[in-house]
Write a protein that binds this DNA or RNA. Structure first.
Length: 888
DNA sequence: TTGGTCACG
DNA sequence: ACGTACGTGACCAAT
């Protein structure tokens, strides 16, 4: 049964503030109310085991109640600042707990709770409302209970219809009549003079409602009768004011309110900031790595699992079960799968779990298991099979046949969910909870190799969760129309990426070291001159120390500040260049230091001794737009814009004598995608004629002919095109072009006048995002934008720009991924020896034997261009050379 | 671990 | 008035 807890945030925090002794953390923040609130929240979670939680707050001062009665809540003491400052802290805490909160201008928390409780009741959920406000009793029903705080907030008293009857002799909906007669001093609701709780109850027992009392005053006598007649209107008003509005436009769904348990990674930092030591201890979020009992709050029932630890004697059992194995998982240690330790494997069918240690898998006896892993005809389902493939590969074990990857599915279903672990997904889908890896293994320096029993049990729990996740994900992929994207694009791509990564790319170590020497010589020269001019030696790599030298010692003007002090980034330094020649030297130093540390030293460290290659790892489940990302090393940000850095590309060479590096990149793919999805005729026309798009933009924006477009106009137009792709704002463009916001706004307006289809697209996509809560790419890749309707301007604006950008960037990502799948197929079909090595968002890099150079120079761009049929042609440009630098 | 900076598309 | 261009990862210093 689902159970929803609704908390009146304001009410509880008020009470906690006055009930708790003052409390500060070391930076002087008042925390007593947050502490009381948190304490109560944890107790509720522990005692009530809710599946859903939501906290409602009052927003702003004026509500609809003020419209009929200006003095509503008049005469209240102003909220003390020590309390006010605790509201934001509470919200931050709730967010870190993964608990939904909500407020709505014009309504009080009561009304929000009234509305949601009504909806929850209709949906068959059990509801517990927690508040200090007796008014709330009016929403009580068979399904809705109200817990009122007693004695401060240390205890709550639950009220159902029965308890209300016992206490007041009333039904829940008579509570508002009670308020109507007796009023409420704290809310400045008048009621009827001389009538308190006792009299009000007596009257209600006799007449039933305010209206009935007022209609039958002739049955009464004395002062009370007089007062009722004279203040009849007050009584009606008071009843209205006390009535909770249960039709508030709440834009939260029950899905938003699902409570998934506390995550130490999220809750820990906030609790630590507040210095709630006893709570941290109670949750086992202390210094030591969390243990299995980490958080009574996290633990819901865990499955007990039985697992066979496979050795030579029990091997036959597993072999018998192999045809029925439904999921598998390889546990490995370390972030870089090219140098990770395989801790063990689990193979599971519905009923049975088999744990295989790496050691056993490597033994000769395990051949049947290795054959099973290597057979591409046997479909494998599991979690992060890409990583498993690589980890096993470096152990000399072949893996093939990935059919369903839970991590990839989770990524497609919500690419921005940053807890796509098995444990996190189990929580998301309300499956029985399992501890996180960090809880079982310890993290970082605290990692402790688990004994086989602990490890196998943990893996079996993961496998069980995986078995349950797969059907749920399949259903959702189907519902989102993502089957093709998943089975025909992302799954095949994951195998291709693994192949590229295993292949690696050769690096000329000597040439790289030589470059390093050249950089080093220049760097030390620059250092000397800088220290000379500064008059002292300091750590040039420290922005803090550099700031002190520039702005305190040399007294250069401060252009920009960061959170922690002076800003010294390139933009600032360029502004300071005219004041002192030191600035130019610092800029040059920065450039070379970057090249040296990241690209010379960093890259040297990543070269494998045995192969002389670097093997990057493409992450397929990181970027919110659908792009890949690259790590260990990142080969998607090798310098190219400046000549000094570009030289780094010379060290990327073919792995075989006489071969070439061939690179092909899409020309203006994002703007072509925009031309297609916006259906802007002008833009399409330009690409149909393969015009220089920035020149064309300049012509239309400035209203000039082609030969009147000068370099400056083209540069501006180029910036506008970038802006359009990013989800333009006048501010952003003004920063980029160093012009005023007004001028930038004018450019944008002129652009939209010239490309009306683009304006229509930008408007429509934002509307679509507001309507659906997400945007999609051409291949139905989806990105949710929960902040698209936020009242906070910045959050909302960010979401709007994202809504404009994601379909463009994401569709471009779809396209190159398609091209990669087709290219892999093509190489195979033609029996070519050429190898695809790298992907850099709009570029593919290959190594090619001489006899295939001509073929590949045609085949690669052709394949890329036909990856997806758009209303405008795709264009890919190819070049080759003896290294990556030459392939330009 | 966080923030500043800078490399790429 | 608000204060940002979209998407990443690596390195360094300071906490």
């Amino acid at each position: 049964m689902e159970k929803l807890i609704l908390i009146d945030g304001n009410s509880i925090i008020y009470r906690a503030f006055f009930a708790m002794p003052p409390l500060n953390n070391s930076s002087g923040l008042h925390t007593n109310a947050v502490y009381g609130f948190t304490n109560m929240l944890l107790r509720l979670i522990q005692d009530e085991k809710p599946t859903h939680i939501m906290v409602a707050f009052d927003a702003g001062k004026v509500t609809f109640r003020h419209e009929g009665y200006e003095d509503y809540k008049g005469g209240r003491e102003k909220t003390p600042p020590e309390l006010s400052e605790q509201f934001p802290l509470t919200r931050e805490l709730l967010e870190s707990f993964g608990i939904c909160w909500f407020e709505l201008p014009g309504y009080e928390a009561d009304d929000i709770i009234g509305t949601i409780s009504k909806q929850a009741e209709a949906a068959g959920k059990d509801v517990l409302v927690v508040t200090g406000d007796k008014d709330m009793l009016q929403v009580v029903s068979d399904k809705v209970k109200v817990a009122l705080t007693r004695k401060g907030i240390s205890e709550v008293e639950p009220y159902g219809p029965k308890e209300i009857q016992e206490r007041y002799g009333l039904t829940p909906d008579q509570i508002i009549d009670l308020k109507g007669l007796m009023g409420d001093a704290s809310d400045n609701i008048p009621g009827v003079p001389g009538i308190g709780e006792k009299t009000a109850l007596k009257l209600l027992h006799q007449f039933g409602s305010v209206e009935e009392v007022l209609a039958r005053t002739d049955e009464l006598k004395g002062k009370m009768k007089e007062n009722l007649i004279q203040h009849a209107e007050d009584a009606r008003l008071s009843k209205r004011l006390a009535t909770i509005h249960r039709e508030v436009p709440v834009d939260r769904s029950f899905d938003d309110m699902v409570f998934r348990g506390l995550q130490e990674e999220k809750a820990g930092p906030v609790l630590r900031k507040l210095e709630f030591k006893s709570l941290l201890e109670r949750l086992s979020f202390g210094e030591g790595a969390g243990t299995a009992e980490a958080g009574e709050a996290t633990a819901r029932a865990q499955d007990e699992v039985e697992v066979v630890i496979v050795d030579e004697t029990s091997l036959q059992e597993l072999v018998n079960e192999l045809p029925g194995i439904e999921v598998m998982y390889v546990e490995s240690r370390g972030d870089n799968p090219h140098q990770s330790e395989v801790m063990g494997l689990i193979f599971s069918s519905k009923e049975r779990h088999f744990f295989v240690s790496c050691e056993f898998l490597l033994s000769a006896a395990a051949k049947p298991v290795k054959d099973w892993l290597a057979d591409p005809q046997i479909p494998k389902r599991g979690y992060d099979l890409h990583r498993a493939d690589l980890a096993l590969y470096w152990q000399g074990i072949t893996f093939a046949g990935a059919e369903f990857d839970i991590e990839l599915a989770a990524y497609l279903l919500d690419p921005t969910d940053n807890n796509q672990t098995i444990s996190g997904l189990a929580a998301k889908y309300h499956l029985p909870q399992l501890p996180s890896d960090d809880e079982v293994y310890g993290k970082g320096a605290k990692f402790k190799a688990p004994d086989p029993e602990t490890l196998s049990r943990h893996l079996a729990r993961k496998a069980l969760a995986m078995l349950r996740l797969i059907p749920l994900q399949k259903e959702e992929l189907e519902k989102n129309e993502m089957n093709r994207l998943f089975y025909e694009l992302e799954m095949p791509l994951s195998r291709i990426l693994a192949d590229m990564e295993k292949q690696g790319i050769s690096v000329n170590r000597d040439a790289l070291a030589e470059l390093g020497k050249e950089f080093e010589a220049q760097i030390s020269k620059l250092e000397k001159r800088i220290y000379e001019i500064a008059g002292l030696e300091f750590n040039l790599n420290s922005p803090k120390q550099l700031g002190e030298v520039l702005f305190d010692k040399l007294e250069l003007p401060v252009v920009k500040k960061t959170k922690t002090g002076y800003s010294t980034d390139a933009e600032v330094l360029e502004k300071l260049a005219p004041y002192n020649e030191i600035v130019q030297f610092i800029l040059e130093y920065r450039q070379l230091a970057k090249l040296q540390s990241t690209y010379v030293e960093g890259l040297l460290k990543e070269i494998r001794q045995d192969t002389g290659k670097v093997h990057t790892f493409y992450r397929q489940t990181i970027a919110a737009t659908g792009r890949l990302s690259s790590q260990y090393p990142n080969l998607q940000n090798i310098p190219i814009r400046l000549e000094e850095g570009r030289k780094i590309r010379q060290v990327f060479v073919p792995s075989e004598e006489g071969w070439s590096i061939l690179a092909a990149d899409y020309s203006q793919i994002e703007l072509r995608v925009l031309a297609h999805i916006s259906d802007d005729k002008g833009l399409q026309e330009a690409f149909l004629h393969d015009m220089d798009i920035h020149t064309k933009t300049a012509m239309d924006v400035f209203g000039v002919s082609q030969d009147q477009v000068d370099a400056n106009m083209r540069r501006s137009a180029k910036a506008v095109n970038f802006g359009i792709v990013y989800g333009i704002s006048d501010y952003g463009l003004s920063q980029n072009l160093h012009i005023t916001r007004k001028e930038a706004a004018q450019f944008i307006e002129q652009y939209f006048e010239a490309f009306k289809g683009v304006r229509r697209y930008m408007d429509e996509i934002v509307q679509e995002a507001k309507r659906n809560g997400y945007v999609t790419t051409l291949l139905e890749r989806r990105r949710y934008l929960p902040e698209i309707n936020a009242s906070n301007f910045n959050l909302r604006s960010f979401a709007e720009r994202t809504a404009m950008n994601t379909p463009i960037q994401g569709t471009a990502a779809d396209i190159i991924k398609l091209a990669m799948v087709m290219m892999d197929e093509t190489l195979r079909k033609h029996g070519l020896k050429s190898r695809m090595l790298l992907q850099v968002h709009d570029e593919l890099v290959f190594e090619v034997p001489p006899q295939e150079l001509e073929t590949m120079s045609k085949l690669v761009p052709e394949t890329m261009e036909k990856a997806l049929q758009l209303s405008v042609p795709l264009k890919a440009e190819v070049s080759s050379g003896s290294n990556w630098y030459e392939a330009k």
